[in-house]
C-alpha cells in the first residue's frame, strides 16, 4: 500500500488538493473527478456532510414529506418515503445524523421524474433522519426523530 498517498488524501480533501495530486501524477484525472463527485460521503458528522454538499444551513420546509415509522425494530433496514412538492427539485439527499457516515444517498431527479421516492437505510442508533432537497438551486430540509431497537450497522 502507498502510505504517502493515503496520508496526502487524508490530510487534504479540498478541491485544490486533488488538482495537486493530479499534477504530481499521483492519481489520474478520472479518479480525482470521481472523488469530487462523491463529495459528502466521506464526512463523519452531519455538519461536515452538509457543508461538503454546499448546503450550509438549509431552510426548513413544509413542502417536503418524510414518511418513516417512529419506532423501528430493525435498524438494518428502515423504510423511508420521501415526497417533495418544491418546484424544480433537482436533488434529494438522505442523512442519518448518528451513523458513522451520515450521508446515505443522493438522488438526482431529472425533469419528468416525480419526487415520490422510497428506499431503505441503515440506522445505527436512535437519532434524527434528515432529508435535504435542492430545488431551484437552493437547499431545503426536513428532519424526523427515529428510534431503532436493534442498531443497523453492527
Amino acid at each position: 500500500m502507498n502510505h504517502q498517498r493515503r496520508r496526502a488524501l487524508r490530510a487534504g480533501g479540498g478541491l485544490g488538493l486533488y488538482a495537486l495530486l493530479v499534477a504530481a501524477g499521483l492519481i489520474s484525472p478520472e479518479l480525482a473527478q470521481a472523488a469530487q463527485k462523491r463529495a459528502g460521503f466521506d464526512a463523519h458528522t452531519l455538519d461536515a456532510a452538509l457543508s461538503a454538499l454546499g448546503a450550509g444551513k438549509p431552510a426548513a420546509s413544509s413542502d417536503i414529506e418524510l414518511n418513516v415509522p417512529d419506532l423501528n425494530e430493525n435498524g438494518a433496514a428502515v423504510r423511508l418515503g420521501i415526497v417533495s412538492r418544491l418546484p424544480k427539485t433537482e436533488q434529494v439527499a438522505i442523512l442519518i445524523e448518528k451513523n458513522p457516515s451520515p450521508l446515505a444517498a443522493i438522488f438526482t431527479i431529472p425533469e419528468g421524474t416525480l419526487v415520490d421516492l422510497q428506499t431503505e437505510v441503515k440506522v445505527s442508533e436512535s437519532c434524527p433522519i434528515h432529508v435535504l432537497v435542492k430545488a431551484s438551486g437552493r437547499f431545503y430540509s426536513v428532519r424526523k426523530d427515529v428510534q431503532v431497537t436493534i442498531g443497523g450497522c453492527g
Binding site: 462523491r38 450521508l103 446515505a104 444517498a105 443522493i106 438522488f107 421524474t113 437505510v121
Partner: peptide, 25 residues
Amino acid sequence: DRVVLSAQFGPSVSANPYVVFKFRG
C-alpha cells in the same frame, strides 16, 4: 436510454437496496 433516476450511495444504504420512484411517460 433516457436516464429517469440516478443516485450515489454510501454504505448507509441497506443491504439489497430497495428503490421505488415514479416518472411521467
